[in-house]
Computed example of a mutant assay.
Amino acid sequence: MPHLPAPPAELVSFLEGLPDPHILVYDRYRILAANGAYRRLFGTAGGAEGKTGFFVEKMVPLPVAAQPVPSAQGLIGRSPAFQKMLGLVARVAPSRAAVLLLGESGTGKELVAHAVHQGSLRARRALVPVDCSSMPEALFESELFGHEKGAFTGAAQARPGLVEAADGGTLFLDEVGDIPLPLQVKLLRLLETGTYRRVGSTELRHADLRVVSATHRNLRHMVAAGHFREDLYYRLSTFPIHLPPLRERQGDTALLARALLERVAPPPRALQLSGAALALLEAQPYPGNVRELRNLLERTALLCDGDSIGAEHVQQALACGLPPLAGAVAQGAGVLPVSVALAGLPRRRPLPDDEALRQAVAAHQGSRLALARRLGISERSLYRRLKTLGA
Results as ranks from 00 to 15, higher is better:
H242C: 06
H221P: 05
A311W: 04
G306C: 11
P19E: 06
G77S: 04
S79K: 08
H364F: 12
R210F: 05
K51L: 09
L303M: 15
Q118F: 02
P323F: 14
F228G: 06
A360P: 07
V89L: 09
R380K: 09
L181N: 09
V185P: 03
G74D: 15
P350Y: 13
E104Q: 14
A33T: 10
T170D: 06
R348D: 14
L303R: 13
A115T: 12
N218F: 09
L256P: 04
A123V: 04
L342K: 02
M85C: 13
G321M: 08
L351D: 08
D27Y: 09
E282I: 07
D354H: 14
A33C: 02
N289I: 15
E148V: 12
G344L: 10
P68H: 11
T300V: 14
P266L: 01
V338N: 06
R220S: 11
L88I: 03
E292R: 14
T107S: 14
L139Y: 12
G306N: 09
A72L: 05
M135S: 08
L41D: 11
L382G: 05
A283V: 03
L256F: 00
S120D: 06
P266A: 01
A93L: 01
S274R: 15
Q73P: 00
L18V: 06
L261I: 05
L280W: 11
P268M: 02
L11I: 14
V60G: 00
A207N: 00
R30P: 00
E282D: 10
A363V: 02
S134V: 05
R122S: 05
A276Y: 01
P324T: 07
P285R: 06
F42L: 12
L255I: 07
E175Y: 07
C320D: 15
R347A: 11
L382N: 08
T215I: 06
L389I: 02
E282A: 09
V163W: 03
A113F: 01
A328P: 08
D131T: 06
P136D: 12
Q250C: 10
A265C: 13
Q284A: 13
R349H: 13
A391W: 12
M85W: 05
G87W: 03
R380S: 11
R385Y: 00
R294S: 06
E292K: 15
A372R: 02
A6T: 15
L261C: 00
A37R: 10
R220F: 11
G321Y: 09
Q284R: 12
I31P: 00
S71D: 14
L219A: 05
L246P: 15
G310F: 01
L187K: 07
L302W: 12
M59R: 14
G251L: 05
A123T: 07
L322R: 13
P61A: 04
A362H: 09
L271H: 01
A81N: 09
